[in-house]
Design a protein around this nucleic acid. Structure first.
Length: 908
RNA sequence: GCAGGGGUAGCGAAGCGGUCAAACGCGUAAGGCUUAGGACCUUAUGGCUCAGGCCUUCGAGGGUUCAAAUCCCUCCUCCUGCACCA
């Protein structure tokens, strides 16, 4: 018995690859090139299996294409742009115990932790080195000569500047204000991962409607200004502290919380003082659109932290207002009569009442009722004739018209508020800040979008479903804020206060890979826009540029465009579309990206593993324990965008199957030369496996690929041996082919087995991908093997049913005449499967054809052959005897029960 | 809110108009092997039958077809991603 020892073959073959420089491709115009890449990694910790999942998917593709004789380039770089590395460095400086623990778990020494605390770049450099080591252990076939670091490599910084100036020249850079979620204490923007609470919340634009109340303004914030004609009263809350503030020459009554938020949105408060809210309760305010007088009433549901602390009540549109109206109707004479309905929805006479009745008037009930009502109104609602100039409009039309109307009456303003509560990790409440003079990339540009969408519709996108998502994301794209005030990165060349943010400095860097090994040797001072214009766009330089420019231009021309970019799904609707749009904006069409591969996340939740190792299991440890080949099987757990689970039981299966192959290779010479039907079967299946597996690899359906090659293949092989297959050449052909089919996934062990089978060339080096044409397709042999297998099932069933233990089983093959009738039906069924039509096509009809056609869903479609059927049973006598412990007799049979593919079985 | 994708055995999943739906894997049960455990092998795992048969079932309800898990409509329900953030 052979045993697979993890780590047995990796070093040996890695050395061979390194010596032959297999992963360092040079320009070769005789070969088709294939440029594949994965986004730059952000090294703020150690590589884990989750990362490795994405990179292995790329590596499998790279190796697959190399076997198909493509000249494959796969580079990899890093980026330091942005905040987290700095953030971690600061946490280490502050001696944050969690941060220190993370470092210790990553096996970082005390001295290094201190180094990282004083210099974040050192941390990036350290972890990019460990990433690289782990990638090499796992067999990533990367050309490391082209490695570089975004926001660190000076020549790259020049490239970013060039790219930005190009965008600016094309009018694709604009400037404006932009709302951001902000921590007032730390005075920085609050990204999703900086939040203790409120992940996914975003700034929302609220309308402010100004209701006059004596000489004061009650500013009501709402998302639904179109309901202003249905307002019955104003809600305030006497438990809240209110302030009178001077804004735009008016006196606003707002919560003191709102007063604090307002300056962040570029509103100046001239003066402010405490305000006794009880002084206006039960007085009246004026609705600006119809001058109706409405009462100001107290309600405890008004939230001090949301908006202005002043709310308008529209009972016939908002379930919460409706419930409160019922409670307080006694308190003001004008509220006695039922409020007027302002929005009609067909088929819902009492929309609000019914929604409240159905869901209840407690908090969750009201929330659900509101959701339902808003959805109905938005999709089917119409503003009815009680709405003045808004009458007859849909909700969306009404909203725009209402805003215009209010603006005309000088009763409109707007404000950004959070969509939900956000709390910073530091503990303070987040708020919305309007950042002034932010720089944008103008992705809203219609022409740019059109060109990009048109191109995306022609790209190769795996899995297919992702295409719609990409197209829709581009379609809905707005301008992208492209800079920030802090963090590591490249300063904007024309406004050095701003640093380019990480998604915007990384849209076309794949072009830089093609030249990075050359440009890195240049003095950064010699790198300028003219050089890039020449290399990437072919524009003749006006001044002298480096003599290496032509070499670089050649590299770029040969390797570009990107053939396949592989990444996880969270980059799908941002990075990947920026990647496409910027290429479309800056490069000629023949340099636009060709393919995308998108995957989900790897979830390692196997109990055994997470208990002993945790989910942060180090790559080097897993590889030591299971072997690089086996760890790589993580990439074969999914076909697409779904998240995948990995479990140790899969690992064992793979290991055992390789040991089985090793066993057979060892005893290969004990096999002989006899050829049987099962030999034809096995080789025929091989051809199909090649076709299926190739198609699966091409579409990154690796789960299917490992199935159609490895699992299915070994099942066939086992059956072949059991059923009496014993031909040395067949076995050798078969095993050699399987090894090739799974080589992209399991490179080391397959390279080893391939050499043990006597192969002279490396799988990785030459045109080694098998060709389906080399294996003879033999449908009849395949069909008759199915007959053998189903007959075994039938015999087992019969034995069970009858309770007999037969000492002799007789297999009766149907007469030749039935075979020809049967095959005639098979032939006709290729044209139609409609039973009536089929019947009319047959030359003769008898009890046999009636029986076949009885069930239209059981019409045979596989051609059979009497000689082969006889032979396969003759050749399988030994096999059948072993299974049933009984003498097997094969003979012709005229019995009614004997049909082609269904021999008569007699137990005796 | 915007967008995308699902709902098939105890679970994960395949099937995407026609070869009796459930391949393949996991789990479970029985047996074999073993000092025992693990691993491995065999068998079973929707229901009824008991000479290779029949019936039920693919989120729910309608429709198209000789034929629907598969195509169309309506509804329910779950998951995923979403820009100053890597």
């Amino acid at each position: 018995m052979s045993t697979y020892k993890p780590g047995e073959f990796e070093d040996k073959w890695n050395k061979v690859y390194a010596e032959k420089k297999v992963f360092q491709p040079e320009i070769n115009t005789k070969k088709k090139k294939f440029f594949i890449n994965v986004p730059v990694a952000y090294p703020d910790g150690r590589l884990h299996l989750g990362h490795l999942y994405t990179w292995t998917r790329a590596d499998i593709y790279a190796r697959f294409m190399r076997m198909k004789d493509y000249n494959v380039l796969w580079p990899q770089g890093w980026h330091f742009t942005g905040g987290p590395i700095i953030g971690m460095s600061i946490r280490l400086k502050d001696k944050d115990p969690t941060a220190i623990k993370i470092m210790e778990q990553s096996k970082v020494s005390k001295e290094n932790i201190e180094k990282f605390a004083s210099d974040p770049v050192q941390m990036g450099l350290y972890f990019s080195k460990t990433f690289k080591e782990d990638f090499e252990l796992a067999g990533m076939s990367i050309d490391w000569r082209r490695e570089f670091i975004l926001s660190y490599t000076p020549q790259y910084t020049k490239f970013v500047e060039w790219q930005l100036r190009k965008l600016k020249d094309k009018g694709l850079i604009t400037q404006g204000n932009h709302p951001v979620i902000w921590c007032p204490r730390e005075d920085t923007s609050l990204g999703d991962h900086d939040r203790a609470e409120g992940e996914g919340e975003s700034p929302m634009l609220f309308s402010i409607i100004k209701f006059k109340c004596g000489g004061l303004i009650l500013p009501v914030a709402t998302l639904r200004p179109e309901t202003v004609f249905g307002v019955t009263n104003i809600w305030i809350n006497d438990k809240i502290k209110y302030r009178k503030i001077e804004v735009d020459g008016e006196s606003w009554i707002v919560s003191s919380e709102f007063e604090k938020k307002l300056p962040y949105q570029l509103k100046e408060i001239k003066s402010a003082s405490d305000f006794d809210i009880s002084s206006i309760i039960k007085t009246t305010a004026v609705n600006p659109v119809n001058n109706e007088e409405i009462p100001v009433l107290n309600a405890d549901f008004v939230d001090k932290d949301l908006n202005t602390g002043v709310v308008m009540s529209v009972p016939m549109h908002s379930p919460a207002d409706y419930v409160y109206w019922e409670k307080v109707r006694e308190s003001a004479p004008s509220l006695y009569k039922k409020p007027k309905k302002i929005i009609d929805v067909d088929g819902y006479e009492n929309l609000i009442e019914d929604a409240v009745k159905k869901n209840g008037s407690d908090r969750p009930g009201l929330k659900e009722a509101t959701r339902f009502v808003y959805k109905k109104e938005a999709s089917e609602g119409k503003l009815n004739d009680k709405n003045g100039p808004l009458s007859g409009l849909t909700i969306n039309e009404g909203r725009e018209r209402a805003i215009e109307l209010l603006k005309g009456l000088s009763a409109y303003d707007s404000i950004y508020e959070l969509s939900g509560r956000v709390v910073c990790r530091c503990g303070s409440e987040g708020l919305v800040k309007m950042v002034q003079n932010q720089w944008f990339i103008k992705y809203s540009d219609k022409k740019l979008k059109e060109k990009a969408i048109d191109h995306v519709s022609r790209m190769n996108i795996y899995p297919q479903e992702a295409r719609a998502q990409v197209i829709n994301s581009i379609y809905n794209l707005e301008d992208k804020a492209m800079a920030r005030r802090g963090g590591l990165g490249t300063p904007l060349p024309w406004d050095k206060e701003w640093i380019v943010e990480p998604l915007s400095d990384s849209t076309i860097y794949m072009a830089f890979y093609t030249i990075s090994h050359i440009i890195k040797t240049l003095d950064p001072g010699d790198v300028n826009d003219e050089l890039f214009d020449y290399v990437f766009l072919g524009e003749k330089p006006k001044h002298q540029i480096t003599p290496k420019a032509d070499e670089m231009k050649k590299e770029f021309e040969y390797w570009y465009p990107v053939n396949l970019r592989i990444t996880a799904k969270e980059l799908l609707t941002n990075h990947l579309i920026f990647f496409i749009l910027n290429h479309v904006a800056l490069f000629p069409e023949d340099k636009w990206p060709i393919g995308l591969g998108i995957n989900g996340w790897l979830v390692i939740n196997d109990i055994k593993m997470s208990k002993s190792k945790g989910n942060t299991m180090l790559i080097s440890e897993s590889i030591k324990e299971f072997g690089a080949d086996v760890v790589r099987s993580i990439a074969a757990t999914s076909n697409g965008i779904d998240d995948v689970k990995w479990s140790t039981s899969d690992i064992n299966t793979i290991k055992q199957k390789f040991e089985f192959l090793m066993d057979i290779i060892e005893i290969l010479n004990d096999f002989g030369d006899e050829r049987r039907v099962v030999d034809r079967f096995l080789v025929s299946k091989l051809g199909r496996m090649v076709v299926d597996t190739e198609s699966n690899y091409s579409q990154l359906k690796y789960r299917n690929a490992v199935f159609t090659s490895f699992f299915e293949g070994l099942d066939y092989l086992k059956f072949y041996l059991e059923a009496g297959g014993k031909n040395r050449e067949t076995l050798k052909t078969f095993i050699s082919c399987i090894i090739k089919l799974v080589h992209p996934i399991f490179p080391f062990i397959t390279e080893e087995l391939n050499s043990r089978l006597g192969a002279k060339t490396l799988l990785e080096e030459s045109e080694s991908w098998p060709r389906a044409e080399d294996y003879g397709l033999d449908e009849i042999a395949e069909n008759e093997v199915s007959v053998l297998r189903s007959t075994v099932d039938d015999i087992s069933k019969l034995i069970k049913i009858t309770g007999k233990t037969p000492s002799r089983i007789t297999i009766g093959i149907a007469p030749a005449e039935k075979f020809s009738t049967y095959n005639e039906i098979v032939e006709s069924a290729k044209k139609t499967k409609n039973p009536k039509e089929l019947r009319s096509m047959l030359k003769k009809q008898d009890a046999f054809t009636d029986r076949i056609l009885k069930n239209p869903n059981r019409i045979p479609i596989n051609e059979l052959d009497i000689e082969i059927e006889r032979r396969i049973f003759e050749e399988s006598k030994e096999y059948l005897t072993r299974i049933f412990n009984s003498e097997i007799k094969v003979q012709d049979s005229g019995d009614e029960k004997a049909s082609p593919g269904r021999p008569k079985i007699e137990l005796a």
